[in-house]
Lab assay of single mutants.
Amino acid sequence: MGFKLLSKLLVYLTASIMAIASPLAFSVDSSGEYPTVSEIPVGEVRLYQIADGVWSHIATQSFDGAVYPSNGLIVRDGDELLLIDTAWGAKNTAALLAEIEKQIGLPVTRAVSTHFHDDRVGGVDVLRAAGVATYASPSTRRLAEVEGNEIPTHSLEGLSSSGDAVRFGPVELFYPGAAHSTDNLIVYVPSASVLYGGCAIYELSRTSAGNVADADLAEWPTSIERIQQHYPEAQFVIPGHGLPGGLDLLKHTTNVVKAHTNRSVVE
């Protein structure tokens, strides 16, 4: 069995187990497998329904001669939608809004960016022009300005110390501490036991640490421990890039980060 097929099978099995364990909360999309990078042309966006009122959005972007996937989250909030992270750029984010209108038909009224990198804030200006209120932590807003990236308009308070959590509509926002970046936030959907790890969490097929220019490698494993301790009931975990899975993604990420750190020390 090929690795790609095995990865998709694991996603399907995880979703099936969740649907059985929580039949009222989960209505997993039966329309197909989780979209992969090879299936999404740059400039297009796919939506994948995880649970009743919960979707991931998947886009792709060219970077350094390669094409990478990027995940975000959409959560229903009454007759409105909360968006977590842009679709990595203005063109993708405009396509995301169009796809949401086509498939869901509810307005996106608020959006949260989970850290300051372009795959999370690139497209904020498109959201703002569409009347979406954009939010991020003060740290993310400051770092985005320093980096020359787009800056969300509103500040999220109460997320300055490791372990801080605040309720934001249908989700809980959690600051686990520094990891992929010093400002990275985690998003949890309690009604569906869905954990969105953003770039602080890796997919299972990833074996290298990737972009760690703004990471705190020493603190990252401790931050992941905080996530595990705060959300032990999480059933569906979405990484910032690639295929979702279960809580095993947290341990896998820790292993990859520690291996990278150990290699760096040896070198």
Rank of each mutant, 00 (worst) to 15 (best):
G2F: 14
K4E: 14
K4Q: 14
K4N: 03
L5T: 14
L6V: 09
S7K: 13
L9W: 07
L9D: 12
L9R: 08
L10W: 11
L10T: 13
V11T: 10
Y12E: 04
T14A: 13
A15S: 14
S16I: 15
I17Y: 09
M18P: 03
M18T: 03
A19K: 15
A19V: 09
A19P: 07
I20E: 12
A25M: 11
F26N: 05
S27E: 08
S27M: 07
V28P: 07
V28S: 07
D29P: 08
S30W: 10
G32F: 13
G32Q: 02
G32V: 08
E33Q: 14
E33H: 15
E33K: 09
P35A: 09
P35D: 04
V37S: 09
S38A: 11
I40P: 12
I40E: 08
P41H: 04
V42M: 06
V42Q: 11
G43L: 04
G43S: 11
G43V: 08
G43M: 10
E44Q: 07
E44Y: 04
V45P: 14
R46E: 04
I50A: 10
I50Q: 10
A51W: 10
A51L: 13
G53P: 14
G53A: 11
V54E: 02
W55Q: 10
S56P: 06
H57E: 06
H57Q: 09
I58M: 15
I58H: 07
A59I: 14
T60M: 07
Q61K: 08
Q61W: 10
S62L: 08
S62H: 11
S62A: 09
F63S: 05
G65T: 05
G65E: 11
G65I: 14
G65F: 09
A66G: 07
A66E: 08
A66R: 12
V67Q: 05
V67D: 05
Y68L: 07
P69Q: 09
N71I: 04
G72D: 00
G72C: 02
G72S: 09
L73K: 00
L73R: 00
V75S: 10
V75G: 02
R76D: 14
R76F: 14
R76C: 12
G78Q: 08
L82I: 10
L83S: 12
L83Y: 00
L83I: 10
A87S: 04
A87N: 02
G89T: 10
A90C: 09
A90E: 05
K91W: 12
K91T: 05
N92C: 14
N92D: 08
T93P: 01
A94M: 08
A95C: 05
L96W: 01
L97W: 03
L97R: 02
A98Q: 03
E99T: 03
E99H: 12
E99M: 10
I100S: 08
I100H: 01
E101I: 07
K102F: 01
K102R: 09
K102W: 09
Q103K: 07
I104N: 13
G105K: 15
P107Q: 04
P107M: 11
V108Y: 09
T109M: 13
T109V: 10
R110N: 15
V112L: 14
S113I: 15
T114L: 00
H115S: 01
F116G: 13
F116W: 14
D118Q: 12
D119L: 01
D119H: 00
R120F: 00
V121T: 04
G123K: 01
V124W: 13
V124F: 04
V126I: 06
L127S: 01
A129M: 09
A129Q: 09
G131I: 15
V132Y: 02
V132T: 14
V132Q: 02
A133N: 04
T134I: 04
T134E: 11
T134W: 05
Y135H: 04
A136H: 02
S137L: 10
S137H: 03
S137A: 07
S139E: 06
S139K: 11
S139T: 14
S139N: 13
T140P: 00
T140E: 01
L143Q: 12
A144D: 14
G148Y: 03
G148M: 10
G148A: 14
N149Y: 14
N149S: 12
N149V: 12
E150P: 15
E150R: 10
P152M: 13
P152R: 11
T153D: 06
H154T: 15
S155P: 06
S155K: 04
L156P: 03
L159V: 07
S160F: 12
S161W: 06
S162T: 04
D164H: 13
V166E: 08
P170Y: 03
V171M: 15
V171Y: 01
E172N: 15
L173C: 06
L173A: 15
F174M: 15
F174D: 00
Y175M: 09
P176F: 01
G177F: 00
A178E: 10
A179G: 07
A179W: 01
S181G: 03
S181P: 00
T182D: 10
T182Y: 08
L185A: 07
L185D: 00
L185F: 13
L185Y: 02
L185G: 00
I186T: 13
I186F: 09
I186H: 00
I186D: 00
V187Q: 00
Y188S: 04
A192W: 09
A192K: 12
S193G: 11
L195H: 01
Y196T: 01
G197H: 00
G197L: 04
C199H: 00
C199D: 07
C199L: 01
C199S: 00
A200L: 05
A200R: 01
I201Y: 00
R206S: 09
R206Y: 12
R206F: 13
S208R: 10
G210I: 13
G210M: 07
N211H: 06
V212Q: 04
D214R: 11
D214A: 10
D216A: 09
A218W: 08
E219P: 05
E219R: 08
W220A: 10
W220L: 12
P221G: 11
T222Y: 10
T222G: 09
T222L: 14
S223E: 01
S223G: 10
S223M: 04
I224T: 10
I224Q: 09
E225L: 13
R226Q: 02
I227N: 04
I227Y: 01
I227C: 10
I227F: 03
I227S: 04
Q228E: 13
Y231L: 03
P232Q: 04
E233T: 10
A234M: 11
A234G: 07
Q235L: 02
F236A: 10
F236G: 12
P239L: 02
P239S: 14
G240E: 01
G240W: 01
H241A: 01
G242Q: 02
G242R: 01
L243Q: 14
G245P: 01
D248R: 07
K251L: 03
T253M: 07
T254H: 15
T254P: 09
N255F: 04
N255C: 03
V257N: 12
A259K: 13
A259Q: 12
H260S: 06
T261Y: 03
T261C: 11
R263P: 07
R263Q: 14
R263C: 05
R263H: 04
S264A: 06
S264R: 13
V265P: 14
V265G: 12
V266M: 12
V266N: 02
E267I: 05
